[in-house]
Design a binder for these strands. Structure first.
Length: 326
DNA sequence: CGAATTTGACCCGCGC
DNA sequence: GCGCGGGTCAAATTCG
């Protein structure tokens, strides 16, 4: 199956990167939102960026919003949502500043939350008990398995506790969107009140503990919610299908398409070359409104000066050319 | 044949 | 304590 550039994605993942022009990539600026920090429909600000139109800002959860982007080239509007998990979601900027330093325990009501992260003590107990309990061979085996599992879980949770999340809503027919990284699916769960399952992915890179969850909105089945957790510790191993796509067809520096999240997702090392000053300003405003620290490449430190130092999640969301000089 | 996915089981926290 | 929902594991299976 080939690309269906004008009709959006078809079905397979292969098409995930074909949502757009002949080169397959349109990076959608998910951040062309009004500078409002409250994400209500009433605060929609329409804006056009030539290739797309911001349709609206969608309330997503307390700590985030979504931009509805209409891509004229596509049969479907594309929704991109940028949000962050935060303590309460009330003060996004505050949350993100925390996140920046030490990502707060996520608490995103819409995307689910990392609710079981600070449970290491309990895990330790369980592990110890599990090790010493049984005489039966089978049970021993099972306990050993459990022990191993719990140890892993413990490790996982120790790390997870510090990892921030970043979620996007994307209008796509494809669930698992190509983002430049390689992922291994490690689980799938049915979502309550939703006919669509949630899939769990982990970055395949050995030392990288980034995870992502992908689920389809039951209220709008065309919307895919992708939640990233953690940050990549390595460059993207998978370049866009078209090497030039990311650079030539990605208008906004903050852009990401429904099919190419690379420049938005945490740990992104891909870069796009497109840069417009006003867009940067928009981005800055938007990021700021989201509470994202943003450092302009034109030496405009719009927000957090530590942005360039720290590897906060949002830092990675921006293309590298937004973080460095070009 | 190795890598990736599927899927049932398991664990945990939380609410009742 | 129990049930539920979210998250993870890992054996089995499928895929390339």
């Amino acid at each position: 199956m080939e690309k269906d550039n004008h009709m959006g994605v078809k079905s397979e993942e292969a098409d995930a990167v074909s949502f757009g022009s002949s080169n397959g990539y349109y990076n959608i600026n998910p951040l062309l939102l009004s500078s409002s920090s409250a994400f209500d429909f009433c605060q929609v600000e329409k804006s056009e960026l030539g290739f797309m139109e911001l349709l609206g800002v969608q309330d997503y959860c307390n700590s985030g919003g979504a931009a509805l982007l209409d891509l004229p080239h596509f049969s479907k509007p594309t929704v991109v949502k940028a949000s962050c998990d935060g303590d309460s979601g009330k003060e996004c900027s505050e949350v993100l500043n925390h996140q920046h330093q030490q990502p707060a325990t996520p608490n995103s009501s819409s995307i689910s939350l990392a609710s079981s992260e600070a449970v290491n003590d309990e895990h330790n107990k369980s592990v110890e008990q599990g090790v010493h309990d049984d005489d039966d061979d089978y049970q021993e085996e099972q306990q050993q398995k459990k022990t191993k599992k719990q140890l892993k879980v413990k490790k996982t949770k120790q790390k997870r506790q510090r990892e921030a999340r970043f979620a996007f809503m994307t209008k796509s027919e494809v669930d698992h969107l190509e983002d430049g990284y390689r992922w291994r699916k490690y689980g799938q769960k049915a979502v309550k009140n939703s006919p669509f399952p949630r899939s769990y992915y982990r970055c395949t890179s050995a030392s990288c503990n980034v995870k992502k969850r992908v689920e389809r909105s039951f209220t709008d089945p065309s919307v895919v919610v992708t939640t990233y957790e953690g940050q990549h510790t390595h460059p993207s191993p998978v370049m866009p299908r078209s090497p030039i796509a990311g650079s030539l067809l990605t208008p906004p520096p903050q852009g990401v398409s429904s099919t190419n999240f690379a420049s938005l997702m945490p740990g992104n090392y891909l870069s796009s070359q497109y840069h417009h000053h006003h867009q940067q300003q928009l981005l800055a405003n938007t990021l700021t409104s989201f509470g994202f620290p943003y450092k302009n490449t034109n030496n405009n430190n719009i927000n957090n000066a530590s942005f360039s130092q720290d590897n906060g999640l949002l830092q990675d969301i921006l293309p590298s050319n937004m973080l460095k000089e070009y």
